[in-house]
């Protein structure tokens, strides 16, 4: 049995189809990443799977329970973490945790140990008496995760849990997720950070309510047309401008301090790019052929979608 399965899951809000015929399955013990721009339908999907939003059409099962008709059974088995901070700012860390422990019916016996364990693991022990409203963004996210974890769920549904969180807290957060994974919990996570998507067992790429690609990160990367030449330089921005006008390529984008050139003939393109750069008096630290990152794929696939939709001319 799959941990999560949907068939043609659809949700409409008046004229807007937020999620359109989504069919996806997540195996038990797997971490599945839902990736896509804002408004792609990630949150709506999460909410339907958590049985807090009724689908307009299609069906879905979480641990075998129907998300339409067996809401209570679904909720007993999941832990959902909303994108917006959903805890009480005027309660302390401990009060929030205790409240959720009661809601989930966690037995008093052994509860103290479990809370201690969670607090230690998330490095939150020193703050257990602090009001949730006075925590930093990263700690708020960890508290919300703890409240969701208090009842040892079978499936976790996390909606952009690390958005806007500092890199250190993000790293802590992922450690907790990996630990859960090793304990057999299934994790379904949405994220806007593509480096996080790389860590998932499988990912789904969402765009305008539809799943446009699905598979392991390496499978998804294979969907990308062409090879990538990365040119690293402190003057990446100027090199990109220069190449855009001088070089024939599928696309030229800046990624941090490097320029990614997508091309069908990598050897030829590297040579001519190197030539153009040195002739113009700029310098590059390195020019090499690299494997596509998910962001490359994302940009290229969404770019194609948009070009074919003719809505926006981005490049």
């Amino acid at each position: 049995m799959d941990a999560i399965r949907t068939e043609g899951l659809t949700r409409r809000f008046k004229d807007l189809t937020a999620v359109n015929r989504l069919t996806v399955n997540v195996k038990r013990g797997e971490i599945f990443g839902l990736v896509g721009p804002d408004g792609a339908g990630k949150t709506t999907t999460m909410r339907m799977l958590s049985a807090i939003l009724t689908p307009t059409d299609g069906s879905g099962w979480v641990m075998g329970y129907d998300i339409r008709t067996e809401c209570a059974a679904v909720k007993d088995r999941i832990a959902y973490m909303s994108q917006q901070f959903g805890l009480y700012t005027d309660l302390t860390v401990m009060e929030n945790i205790e409240f959720y422990a009661d809601l989930y019916g966690v037995a008093k016996k052994g509860r103290r140990e479990r809370i201690d364990e969670l607090l230690n693991f998330s490095y939150m022990h020193p703050f257990k008496r602090r009001l949730a409203g006075n925590l930093s963004g990263g700690m708020k996210q960890k508290l919300q995760l703890m409240c969701a974890l208090i009842h040892t769920p079978e499936v976790m549904l996390l909606d952009e849990p690390t958005n806007g969180v500092d890199p250190v807290s993000r790293r802590d957060f992922w450690r907790i997720l990996y630990r859960l994974l090793s304990e057999g919990v299934t994790i379904f996570v949405s994220t806007a950070y593509l480096d996080e998507a790389e860590r998932c067992n499988r990912i789904g790429l969402m765009h305008e309510g539809e799943l446009i690609a699905q598979g392991t990160p390496s499978e998804v990367k294979k969907l990308m047309r062409g090879r990538i030449i990365a040119i690293t330089s402190p003057e990446a921005r100027r090199i990109a401008y220069l190449l855009k006008s001088e070089l024939e390529a599928v696309s030229i984008c800046i990624f941090g301090d490097s320029v990614h050139v997508v091309t069908d003939s990598p050897e030829k393109t590297s040579v001519s790019a190197g030539k153009i750069i040195s002739e113009s008096g700029l310098s590059a630290d390195s020019i090499r052929s690299i494997d596509a990152t998910l962001e490359d794929v994302f940009v290229s696939m969404l770019g194609e979608k948009r070009a074919s939709a003719g809505a926006e001319d981005e490049n």
């Binding site: 896509g36 721009p37 940009v299």
Partner: peptide
């Protein structure tokens, strides 16, 4: 660029 997809972020920059 908070809450904007990667392509729009690029265009904005």
């Amino acid at each position: 660029t908070s809450g904007v997809d990667p392509i729009s972020r690029r265009a904005f920059w």
